[in-house]
């Protein structure tokens, strides 16, 4: 049992690390601000959850576990708010999302 839990937590930690790097690579590769937001939210959600749950399994006292859960909930609750504030501010300042050419007409109608 102990061994299985250890393997699960290692997997979660390493895979969470991989997702962290993926999000950062997306942050560098994606072409404009709005698409970069999507890459950033990968790190904010699943990567954070995986690393913190991996630590949760390793934690020895329940006080530490409760704190880990609180950190996770806090990050999950605040990241959409911060993201929404960023997008609102960017749109407000006149930043336009880069869209494929042929779809331009339907976008104008949609807004």
């Amino acid at each position: 049992m102990e061994g299985i839990l250890n393997i699960v937590s290692w997997f979660l930690l390493v895979f969470g690390g991989f997702l962290c790097i993926s999000g950062a690579v997306g942050l560098l590769r994606f072409p404009d601000f709005f698409t970069r937001m999507h890459a950033a939210s990968v790190t904010d959600t699943l990567a954070t959850a995986m690393i913190l749950i991996g630590l949760f399994i390793q934690a020895e006292s329940w006080l530490v576990q409760v704190k880990l859960v609180m950190v996770l909930l806090f990050v999950l609750l605040t990241s959409p708010t911060a993201g929404h504030a960023l997008v609102m501010a960017a749109l407000h300042a006149g930043l336009e999302p880069v869209l494929p050419k042929q779809k331009q007409a339907s976008v104008e109608a949609g807004r």
Binding site: V14, C20, G23, A24, V25
Partner: peptide, 13 residues
């Protein structure tokens, strides 16, 4: 490994 991955991601950010 996890700390290293996070550090690399921080560098890219």
């Amino acid at each position: 490994a996890a700390a290293f991955a996070v550090l690399v991601a921080m560098l890219l950010a």
